[in-house]
């Protein structure tokens, strides 16, 4: 079967929607980080498929930048989750209510 750009874009959009739905519905901080990674992968699929469409390398270059930055973001996110866990003894977002009111 021949994979066209449209297929890849639908794949990207599907992954993006799964990640977005998870981000909005899950309440566990780690699942949230995983959903963010999923959405970033969707972006990467879009970049790489557009790079193939236009026959130039800029999209592939952006892919590497996105991956690197996503790693940095996860590192900071995990550090903050650890700190949150140390203070609260859980990582549920429902418990993050100190600032309400």
């Amino acid at each position: 079967m021949n994979v066209s750009i449209a297929h890849l874009l639908f794949l990207s959009f599907g992954v993006f929607c799964i990640g977005g739905a998870g981000f909005l519905m899950r309440r566990n901080a780690l699942s949230l980080l995983i959903c963010l990674e999923l959405m970033l992968s969707a972006v990467n699929i879009a970049f790489v498929s557009f790079s193939r469409l236009h026959q130039n390398e800029s999209g592939n270059l952006l892919y590497f930048l996105v991956i690197t930055v996503a790693a940095c973001e996860s590192a900071v996110g995990l550090a903050l989750i650890l700190n949150f866990f140390r203070l609260k003894k859980n990582i549920r977002l429902d418990e993050a209510t100190t600032l309400k009111g």
Binding site: A29, L32, E73, G77, L80, F84, L87, K88, A96, L99
Partner: peptide, 13 residues
């Protein structure tokens, strides 16, 4: 401090 950590956490997400 929990307030500072929570704010960073929300901002990150």
């Amino acid at each position: 401090e929990i307030r500072s950590t929570e704010s960073a956490f929300k901002y990150l997400m």
